[in-house]
């Protein structure tokens, strides 16, 4: 039994690997220029969100992105997961008013509560499209999961703008770039409807961090990665426990199996 056992394991492993490989291919296909891979705090099997960066990122979202992009799956109460206290959350939203109905059924605006979803910049998608040259800015709730290369792509887009006068004549010709177009290195087709949203000192960080373009982009990406999957840390923590448990169980099962089979080998 010894030899075939090793061989079958090898073969089944190869098949499984091949199956995963085809899966990877499916994901990798159809891309354009890939943004460079960055090191993120939340990467790897033990990675966690950098709370301070994500809080700064929330500030960038709130002061810059929120003017056009909704974050409709997030509620203000979720911000407590980023380390804010309930009172801090209430303080943050004290000036925000959201549409509701009053007792007589008439539409009114009332102050936002922590249980409210993030207020949308436009009432609906058609309005969003109408206000943005026909293309509605995408919702950012799951944006990091909805793009190939996830956080690297988001960071790439935010920092990948090339001004018209820095473009080569070939680029201008190949992609038919006009003077008013925005050219982005990492956007499929390169011509992007969004004007460069961030620049140095676009925001003033409360914690004194220097607000460079890179810093802002990295912070808001950290925030959006958290928004895309707020339970990620819980998932990895559970995973470590489950796998340790299963490894122990597999060891014991193997010992039992050996004992049971001892007289048949």
């Amino acid at each position: 039994m010894r030899k075939p056992f090793a061989r079958t394991l090898l073969v089944s492993g190869a098949i499984a690997l091949a199956a995963f490989a085809t899966g990877t291919v499916a994901i990798a296909a159809g891309g354009t220029e890939h943004p460079p891979a960055r090191k993120w705090h939340f990467q790897g099997p033990f990675g966690t969100f950098d709370r301070a960066a994500a809080q700064r990122g929330f500030q960038v979202y709130q002061e810059v992105c929120a003017a056009c992009h909704s974050l409709s799956l997030m509620a203000y109460r979720n911000l407590t997961d980023l380390g804010l206290t309930e009172n801090q959350v209430k303080g943050l939203i004290k000036d925000i008013s959201v549409p509701d109905l009053n007792d007589d059924g008439a539409p009114v605006d009332r102050p936002a509560r922590p249980s409210d979803r993030f207020k949308k910049p436009f009432p609906n998608e058609a309005a969003a499209a109408a206000a943005n040259n026909g293309k509605a800015p995408p919702d950012l709730s799951v944006i990091v999961k909805a793009r190939e290369a996830g956080p690297d792509y988001i960071y790439g887009i935010l920092t990948g703008y090339v001004p018209y006068d820095k473009l080569t004549p070939e680029q201008i010709k190949e992609f038919d770039v006009k003077k008013d177009d925005y050219f982005n290195k990492y956007f499929p087709g390169h011509k992007i409807a969004m004007a460069p949203p961030l620049s140095d000192d676009k925001v003033t960080y409360a914690d004194g961090t220097k607000a460079t373009l890179d810093q802002e982009a990295a912070d808001v990406t950290e925030f959006l990665a958290w928004a895309s999957e707020p339970h990620m840390e819980d998932r990895k923590r559970t995973g470590v426990r489950v796998i340790l448990f299963l490894l122990a169980l597999a060891g014991l099962m193997y010992a039992v199996k050996r004992t049971v089979w001892a007289d048949k080998h």
């Binding site: 998932r235 559970t238 995973g239 489950v242 796998i243 299963l246 169980l249 597999a250 099962m253 049971v260």
Partner: peptide, 19 residues
């Protein structure tokens, strides 16, 4: 017992992806 061992091994690989 042999199936049980195999199932647990499979679940380990499965868990790596799930988590």
């Amino acid at each position: 017992m042999k199936d049980g061992f195999g199932v647990v091994c499979f679940l380990i690989v499965f868990s790596v992806f799930v988590f």
